[in-house]
Amino acid sequence: MTATEIVTPPAPDPGATPPRRRAALRRLRRSPLGIAGFAVLAVAVLASVLAPVLAPYSPAQVHFDAPFQIPGTVGFALGTDDLGRDVLSRILFGLRASLEVGVLAVALALVVGVPLGLAAGYFRALDAVISRFTDLMLAFPFLLLAVGLAAIRGPSLGNAALALGISQIPGMIRVVRSETFRLKNLDFVAASLVDGASDVWVLGRHVLPNALSAVIVQATVAIPQAIIGESVLSFLGLGIQPPDPSLGTMLADAQQYAAQAPWTAVVPGLAIMLVALAFNLFGDALRDALDPRSSR
């Protein structure tokens, strides 16, 4: 029997109705900080996608005749590093790598975390098993995961994203689990079950759409964490490998001559901070818009 034949008009579903989403969008548009965050993100994404066009030089191109040019020097808007590489070009490409890792990591967390969270929140029998799994993953902080992965498979962008993604899974599971648990006990879900809907139908039609707000908010929180995490790993040499530009490796290089050329340490850090801040601002505004009762 298919669920669709059996389900008579489902009970009013407060979350999936378009007016609520529209109201959320309206609230989001009224939040100046949220808009600012979104604008910065849009610029950052655009800049990193267009990096090959926008960057004045290749990120690896060295100018041995022009090391440690201060920002504002003609031809080098943000200065150069010890090898005379253009900081602006390296930032643009580094940003690209950062966003890539951030999105990949969170995508992994979504793909694994959402189904597990749904299952844990919905089926009591699975809850204990999945909770142990969550505990287990939490016992390995992302840096240790990255250390282990780097030891086994060698350091790379992919492994950094994998380690960061795995470390985001428990958080995602918890958020989805508690949302599912809450929604499962609401009247409209119970009504649907009474109508004879299958569990999968209820999860897909009622629980997931309503849990989506929480998932989106969690994702916007997770991405900046992953971006910062990537810079940490690359800084330690466990992530993106030179000569590929990354904001983390730029900072690792800068460490040795920061006193001489402070901009090489300041600019990449500011870039990471700006992007993370933009994500956090947008995420906060989104959360407030989706759930007006909650506040940070």
Partner: peptide, 27 residues
């Protein structure tokens, strides 16, 4: 307080460390 928390969440700690060394320790 909120602004401070947002900054704290967005700043990579190790970078903060580099800057602190650069200006507070070395400088």
């Amino acid at each position: 307080a909120n602004a401070l928390a947002l900054l704290g969440l967005s700043v990579p700690n190790f970078w903060l460390g580099l800057i602190a060394i650069l200006y507070l320790a070395v400088g």
